[in-house]
Nucleic acid binder design. Structure first.
Length: 861
RNA sequence: GCCGGGAUGGCGGAAUCGGUAGACGCAGCGGAUUCAAAAUCCGCCGCUGGUAACAGUGUGGGGGUUCGAGUCCCCCUCCCGGCACCA
């Protein structure tokens, strides 16, 4: 055995052995229980970052642990290969996105392999390959024919200078990121998935997922946002015709407090009113400026203008003015809202700003049963409460929330002007992207036949890979060989759709394709049902809503197509926190920030200084490692210096998986030190010859105590990995065990057999986390044997005496030792007899004695 | 703005069901080894007072429930994630 721990050598040897023996090949025909362990596949951005290392190490620990416990494990890997960064790289470097992407994949695959993950590489897939996306196109055509996919207008960010649609992240403070032009909202036709049709099932399905974190389920439920309310109309006359302005509200009980309505800038009423009102027309075009992102809409200044038009209140018959509001969106709901300034905070602010009337219609009892005072001067929380009752509302006065809503809905229904309705916040999923590097939407536009789906035998619609985008519009429009085609229905000349699909579509079903990536006869075969659902899914918390909701939706679409038999794709979910690091920057006179990598910055006398010029930099706070903030740490350097096991150990030890992980170079050093120590302990033992592990018999006290700690540790590590999914504490427990082992003295045969037992077990307990050193050390300790998870020896856990904490009035005052089997009376007596207890009792009789078995005694005086 | 989460020593974190706050590691300090250094090994290490024994205090801030609160409840502050075209 080598005396020194040489990571590069043992890691190469272990990886070669695993590859040669196809150790991690998942068997489709095994009779062992299956364990499908999946980490979210990476976007091939260039090189691996720490977030990847963390994500895939978590998955690998769980995969390897289950393999040691006898499961038939499948841990696949692939590439979420379509997306915007490839186009940006293309523009910057004049390389086709395809070439850039494939080069990145090759590099990142090598890096993943160097980390020694137990991946079945025979199942690798890339979403930008036609043999993958052809099935996505095939499903699209099926769903289009079923009506699950439809076309409608939708609002996008339009850059008028680059003549291109911008992603929300490409809009910075209302301007295009490249051109700097003011962004406009523009309505264009798009294809939509009818996800709202599945809203109820997506919501109730959350209750069938006990293996999901509560917070993710809460976020999804809120996102779906089921609410019951009333949809009703304000009648009006325009140009001699009877019309109705429809709105939806969850607060129909406040309907008597409506003092105006607000419509979106694109609403027909607004357009009509602007026809002879230049000021209003100007305001409407102002509303059309800025991004479509909800966060921007919600934080911008609320502005409005009176259209001069009036609608009729459906119950009072009063005339209600109609305003245009920049915060009302045409594509959400009806494009119009009723405004009750007295009982909605946003309406209140709006009414105050424009001097619109505020009419209280809900009151609430405060202290002493008196009605709380209402003032139009300042908003108070309770104005929006549903706990009050109606006032100033005629026949509805005195009614509570539910009774009022029922009565008002009934009266509206009687007039044919409204009804109760369940509404979802969730909107249909628009998937058209005006971009080149994505899966082509398989539709052909024919002047005679309209939108015609591409027939199955003409799929895939292959994306040409030799294109270099230039940042202005979709280059596919300029490719005659792509655009020009014949209509599958009538055979006439036709145009191919050039929009591509949202990349969330590819990532919505890749987990199923891993079961049968080689299947050429269809999207999925029967192996999908063998492997699904995924037993453990691991990915970043940032995917809690969108990706995970879309994948759940897609699974149901595939189920309804007869492709899978389960209802949900992921049985258990672990949402890993982000890897964060400090950020440093300098700001130029024009406000442009330059970001510096933490590796190039040092702290001197409490101030951050750039190493290269010794001048100060501004500390920007701790943020997710990203290219834009230049605070990433390259895992490659780490692997080169310390080896993959150290990188894996540190990322698992520094924080529990669900929390964010703060990067620390010093911590890496500590992880490496532990592995060296582990190696040394095994080496020293092996020098005296390996023996059979302790198998029973009498032991000296020190060895007995160590064995108890060993079996406690085996119990804890198994529980930490399997149930708690918290690896930092598992590692800490093995570190403690190794510290104790180092203190064990004696070279007699019995002691050596205990040392052998401890080392064999400790190496195995750590093997899921640090598999290379595990492989090497186990081969030295037990040559030729296959590693299996150690069993807990219950008899080793038994203790005769235990220590209890002694409290007086809840404060720790001492300890007492009692027999493990001692009953409450005996414990009480021992506690009261204790010297420290006597001191604090000062001769007074105890009022009460609380005994917590196995823990503590609390004497209350 | 809305939804979700977080805050514990100098630092990362532990405390799993309301029961010893600070496990384990990092940094620091002291010692051993060494010609010297690196590496390694041993010890100390929340804060305040005290030579010490010990006492007080302490889990972002304020209040509450309880024999007992880092953990439960209410209010607040700050930080992070998501907000539908980043992935």
């Amino acid at each position: 055995m080598q005396e020194k721990y040489l990571p590069s050598e043992i890691e190469r040897a272990a990886q070669e052995k695993w590859t040669a023996s196809q150790t991690y090949r998942a068997r489709d025909d095994s009779d062992r229980p299956k364990y499908y362990c999946l980490s979210m596949f990476p976007y091939p951005s260039g090189k691996l970052h720490m977030g990847h290392v963390r994500n895939y190490t978590i998955g690998d620990v769980l995969a390897r642990y289950h393999a040691l416990r006898g499961f038939n494990v499948m841990q696949p890997m692939g590439w979420d290969a379509f997306g915007l960064p490839a186009e940006n790289a293309a523009i910057a470097n004049n390389v086709p996105p395809a070439a850039w992407t494939y080069a990145n994949i090759d590099h990142m695959r090598t890096q993943l392999q160097a980390l020694g993950f137990a991946i079945d590489w025979s199942r690798e897939l890339a979403t930008c390959k036609p043999d993958y996306y052809r099935w996505e196109q095939w499903l699209f055509t099926r769903l289009f024919e079923k009506g699950v996919i439809y076309k409608k207008m939708a609002t996008v960010n339009w850059d008028p200078v680059d003549q291109t649609v911008l992603a929300n992240e490409q809009v910075i403070e209302g301007r295009g990121w490249r051109s700097g032009a003011l962004v406009e909202k523009r309505d264009i036709p798009m294809y939509f998935f009818r996800i709202t049709q599945y809203a109820d099932e997506l919501l109730s399905g959350l209750d069938t997922l006990p293996g999901w974190p509560e917070r993710v389920k809460t976020m999804q439920a809120n996102w779906i946002g089921k609410s019951t309310g009333v949809r009703f109309a304000f009648p009006y006359q325009l140009d001699g015709k009877d019309e109705q302005l429809w709105v939806f509200t969850t607060r129909a009980d406040t309907i008597m407090g409506v003092t105006f309505c607000a419509v979106a800038a694109e609403h027909p009423l607004a357009t009509r009113a602007a026809a002879n009102n230049p000021e209003l027309a100007a305001f409407i075009s102002e509303c059309k400026q800025g991004s479509v992102a909800e966060a921007d809409m919600a934080t911008m200044e609320k502005k409005g203008m009176d259209t001069g038009l009036k609608v009729t209140h459906p119950l009072t018959g009063e005339a209600v003015p109609v305003w245009v509001g920049n915060y009302v969106l045409m594509s959400y709901g009806e494009g119009a809202v009723m405004a009750v300034p007295a009982h909605d905070e946003r309406d209140f602010g709006f009414a105050q700003k424009y001097g619109l009337p505020i009419k209280q219609v809900i009151a609430e009892k405060g202290e002493g049963g008196r009605e709380k005072g209402f003032s139009t001067d300042a908003w108070e929380e309770w104005y929006a409460s549903k706990a009050g009752y109606c006032v100033n509302s005629g026949k509805y006065d005195g009614l509570g929330y539910e009774a009022a809503v029922d009565a008002i809905a009934a009266d509206l229904a009687a007039k044919g002007l409204g009804e109760k309705k369940t509404q979802f916040r969730l909107r249909d999923w628009g998937i058209s992207r005006q971009r080149y590097w994505g899966c082509p939407i398989p539709i052909i536009h024919c002047d005679a036949c309209g939108d015609v789906p591409v027939p199955a035998d003409q799929l895939p619609v292959v994306l040409p890979e030799d294109v270099v985008p230039d940042g202005s519009g979709n280059p596919l429009n300029k490719r005659a060989d792509f655009v020009n085609c014949t209509c599958p229905k009538c055979g006439g000349a036709a145009r191919r759709e050039t929009d591509t699909m949202d990349t969330f579509v590819e990532s919505s079903w890749y987990y199923a394709r891993y079961a049968c990536p080689d299947f050429a006869g269809g999207m999925l075969d029967e192996r999908a049902n063998k492997w699904l659902p995924v037993d453990q899914y691991i990915g970043g918390i940032e995917h809690a809503i969108l990706h995970l909701l879309y994948a759940r939706f897609f699974h149901k679409l595939m189920r309804d197509e007869g492709l899978v038999s389960s209802d949900e794709p992921f049985a258990n979910l672990l949402t890993q926190g982000m890897v964060v690091a400090d950020t440093y920057y300098r700001e130029a006179a024009d406000g442009k920030k330059t970001w510096f990598n933490p590796a190039d910055v040092e702290t001197r006398d409490g101030a951050a200084i750039l190493k290269s010029d010794g001048q100060p930099v501004i500390v920007g706070g701790t943020e997710k490692m990203s290219k834009s903030k230049n605070n990433g740490v390259d895992p490659q350097a780490l692997i080169d210096q310390y080896g993959a096991d150290t990188a894996r150990l540190f990322t698992m030890f520094a924080a529990p998986p669900e929390q964010s992980l703060e990067w620390s170079d010093a911590g890496v050093e500590g992880a490496h030190r532990f592995l060296k120590r582990l190696w040394k302990l095994a080496y020293e033992h092996a020098q005296g010859g390996v023996v059979a592990a302790f198998a029973g018999g009498e032991l000296p006290e020190a060895a007995k105590t160590l064995r108890r700690q060993l079996h406690q540790t085996i119990q804890k590590v198994g529980d930490d990995i399997e149930r708690r999914k918290q690896f930092n504490t598992a590692i800490a427990a093995v570190m403690e065990l190794m510290n104790a082992l180092a203190r064990l003295e004696g070279d007699d045969a019995t002691t050596r057999s205990v040392r052998q037992e401890v080392l064999e077990a400790a190496v195995t307990l750590l093997a899921p986390i640090v598999p290379h050193i595990g492989e090497a050390l186990y081969a030295e300790l037990k040559p030729g044997a296959a590693m299996t998870w150690p069993a807990v020896d219950e008899s080793a856990l038994v203790q005769d005496e235990i220590e209890l904490m002694l409290q007086v009035n809840g404060k720790l005052r001492g300890q007492i030792r009692v027999a493990a089997a001692a009953d409450k009376t005996a414990i009480e007596a021992a506690a009261l007899a204790n010297e420290a207890a006597q001191k604090y009792l000062e001769g007074k009789p105890p009022k009460k004695v609380v005994v917590v078995p196995g823990r503590l005694v609390n004497i209350v005086v």
